[in-house]
Amino acid sequence: MIGVGKIKQYANVLEKPLSKGKQEVSLGAFAFLFSELVQYNQTQVDNIAELERRLEDAGYSVGARILELLCHRDKGNRRETRLLGILSFVHSTVWKVLFGKVADSLEKGTEHEDEYMISEKELLVNRFISIPKDMGTFNCGAFVAGIVRGVLDSAGFPAVVTAHFVPMEGQQRPRTTILIKFAEEFLQCSFSSPVLNPCPCNVLAYSIAVLTSHHAHHALPFQLNHKGLCIAPVELD
């Protein structure tokens, strides 16, 4: 049961065992807190774009931490290294943990190859929020966009992520679409030559320094594929 007995003291935060992630607070408590986040940031900015950027920044730090937490707790310190893998991780695992349900849809943009969309009919953070007329296209979903960007970026998939309202036919409230646009260099370059097989250790590295330390066992110089995945040349007998 939650909250029975005194809290145990630990010398530092790392010694404390990770919670199972089953604890909950009331939706009201979160809604109040989120509304304070938005209101405080409103006092710090002059325009909507700036406000969205600040909410996104707040979300980013949540995203970066949730990725670390989930990979450690649920995935045995492994993390998705493929583009579609990480997208479905966001759409299902992250969404389920944060919002209690899988996101309504994950789609690929039809006009641009490098765009993906996660849509939600009623995004948790927008539940109790109505946008005043004079604030135009402002969407508090920027916070969630920030979370998504935080997860993707920390996993080595830099992207620009934005939140938009999309009117739905026959529905009073628009749905929120989180638009994910991956960095260009990511999808443009093609795979390397076929003699290169993916490195079996399958470690994602986005800097040469990380790679050098992780892959000292490769006798031959390693290479990166377009997703920053190590593809060391495999020695053929």
Partner: peptide
Amino acid sequence: IFASVEHVNAELFTLTYGAIVRQLLTD
């Protein structure tokens, strides 16, 4: 009452609060 209201994951709540405190410390 707690059982009858809607819930959210405490980690979302915790991390969001952390984000607020961090923003305040920066600002």
